[in-house]
């Protein structure tokens, strides 16, 4: 208690909200953008085609709808292209840090000692692209970080490392 913690120097690897300095930041798989684009187009492209058909053969008013859907598609694609590279993560000495978002940025820092369990999930689409989602769970449901679109091998390796670190730095609730 007497060793005033604020006097000690901060950890050598600094967390930063932006940029690549400080910690060894790693991006997620760029294929995540492809997968997300695929999901988006599965929903929007058939709708767009139907609206185009209706506009051409039934009533001209449907052009407006087609335009709106096309705009949504373009905006979604632009957003995905921007968002996916913004997801980065890094392993520090004490914690795992996940950053995401470009407009609304969030940074979650989860200490290894606080990890209760780690989920590795992979849906059919993700499996197709050889990716998995790693989810970190602490005792609080709101505090876990999530890293989507990690290459499967990397996700498995990360899970192993986290399990080992969590065991060595484990603390009670």
């Amino acid at each position: 208690m007497s060793d005033a913690p604020q006097d000690q120097p901060p950890s050598p690897t600094e967390v930063r909200l932006f940029g690549d300095v400080g910690m060894p930041w790693r991006p997620v798989s760029p294929k995540l953008a492809t997968a997300r684009l695929l999901v988006l187009s599965v929903f929007l492209v058939p709708l767009l085609l139907v609206l185009l058909g209706l506009a051409a053969f039934v009533w001209e008013g449907f052009w407006v709808g087609a335009l709106v859907v096309a705009a949504a598609l373009a905006f979604g694609a632009w957003l995905i292209r921007r968002q996916v590279p913004a997801i980065t993560w890094a392993e520090g000495a004490e914690e795992l840090v996940v950053r995401r978002g470009r407009m609304f940025r969030t940074l979650v820092s989860v200490p290894y000692g606080r990890l209760q369990f780690v989920d590795v999930q992979s849906g059919p689409l993700e499996r197709r692209f050889d990716m998995a989602t790693v989810e970190l769970h602490t005792a609080s449901p709101q505090s876990g970080g999530q890293i989507p679109g990690l290459p499967t091998a990397e996700a498995e390796a990360l899970r192993e490392r986290l399990a080992a670190r969590g065991e060595s730095q484990r603390a009670g609730l």
Binding site: Q6, V15, E94, E95, S109, G113
Partner: peptide
């Protein structure tokens, strides 16, 4: 904010080990 985050990680980890 960034300083709080960085320092708190270290402080929390020390406190956990001490506990």
């Amino acid at each position: 904010a960034v300083r709080l985050l960085n320092e708190q990680v270290v402080r929390s980890s020390r406190a956990r080990q001490r506990a």
